[in-house]
Amino acid sequence: MNSVILIAGARLQAVLLLVFSGYMLLRGHNAPGGGFIGGLIAATGFVVYAIACGTQDARKALRFDPGSIAGAGLGIALLAGVMAALWGDALFTGQWLFIGATEDSKGIPLSTVLIFDIGVYLVVLGAILSIAFSLEEAV
């Protein structure tokens, strides 16, 4: 499809969706969102981009092979779970670090749970794009 309007729109939309997906990923612990939803949003952005500009461009924009992204995501999720062992806890026990925490606020919460959610995000993104790209290339 060689539509200038679609291409320009898809590019802009892809950027917005990517930023939005990161936002959804991070807010997930306290508000609707999370790794699964974030990954779906990011994937939607790339799928639309691929329809407008072709899968070759979309693959280039993604920089990494979607299969590798999904694999890396699974590895990161596993790592986040195994990290609990460093503190002597059971597998997949969340570990938290509150940077700059005071009496009133918890500061910046960092946790293995977030790392796990990033893993989920990457698996969903990579898996869907891997399917979408090869489906579009096959037909």
């Binding site: 997930g28 612990h29 306290n30 508000a31 609707p32 969102g33 999370g34 790794g35 699964f36 969340g94 938290w96 918890k106 919460p109 946790s111 749970v113 796990f116 959610d117 989920v120």
Partner: peptide
């Protein structure tokens, strides 16, 4: 440390 129960269960 999470208020979104669905996501806390998931992760």
């Amino acid at each position: 440390f999470g208020q979104n129960i669905v996501n806390v269960i998931l992760v």
